[in-house]
Nucleic acid binder design. Structure first.
Length: 102
DNA sequence: GGTCTGACATATT
DNA sequence: GAATATGCCAGAC
């Protein structure tokens, strides 16, 4: 199975994100001990299994410029709506207000 | 087991 | 702010 220690650490870190708050991939990567592995965080979440998607608030993880979702625009829309539903201020461009991130 | 791809970041121009 | 270049790590083939 592909879920490595790193991946599990990422899931754990994402789970620790407080509601109504978003974290960047860089922050997650740094949280698991790999400040330069933002990309790995992306792939790990991209291959996030459904059963884990239920317990991991992946929608709280955004890119440095907000929601990225270069692979699936639908995902971006879902993520944006979920964030808005949680009270996160997401602009029309998919960017997050600085007081909610960082 | 080597290579390509990718939900990225940071620095520089 | 946008475009370009480089580094980083894990997953899929």
């Amino acid at each position: 199975m592909s879920r490595t220690r790193f991946t599990r650490a990422v899931y754990a870190a994402v789970r620790r994100i407080p509601p109504g708050t978003v974290a960047t991939y860089g922050q997650i990567a740094a949280a698991v001990g790999h400040p330069r592995a933002a990309r790995a965080v992306g792939t790990a979440l991209a291959r996030l299994p459904r059963h884990l998607a239920n317990q991991v608030p992946w929608h709280r993880v955004v890119g440095a410029s907000g929601i990225s979702a270069r692979d699936d625009p639908e995902r971006a829309a879902t993520q944006r709506e979920k964030l808005i539903d949680e009270g996160v201020a997401v602009t029309a461009g998919g960017r997050i207000r600085r007081d909610r991130s960082r």
